[in-house]
Amino acid sequence: MNIVNEIEKEYIKYEDIPFKAGDLVRVHVKIVEGKRERIQVFEGYVIAIKNSGNRKTFRVRRESYGIGVERVFPLNSPRIEKIEVVRRGKVRRAKLYYLRQRVGKAAQVKQRLK
């Protein structure tokens, strides 16, 4: 194993990612306000998972008051307290950027039933 991978390994929290593109997730993010720390939840569809090693990120999209909001989270960030999977999605591709063109009900992802 090369040295860079070895260093990255120390920061990796998840060997297997607990979710896939299309899943509805709730991301619990630690937010520091001055000295106080609180947890904010961001709920939405995972529309992309990118990069590798400790640089892996995922992009979550949600609609907030009629406006699409996307956030990119570093998967291995210590600021992420917890990632809950609310619902599995049934999708046919890894990057769901087509959801950006859709609004309302069309922007939903079908549930995957096992």
Binding site: N2, I3, V4, N54, N76, S77, P78, R79
Partner: peptide, 20 residues
């Protein structure tokens, strides 16, 4: 050796160069 990124104590991403 190369470049990568790490998380510091505050949880921020820091771009780093690895030097042996």
């Amino acid at each position: 050796v190369g470049m990568t990124q790490i998380f510091n104590e505050e949880g921020n991403v820091v771009p780093v160069t690895v030097i042996k």
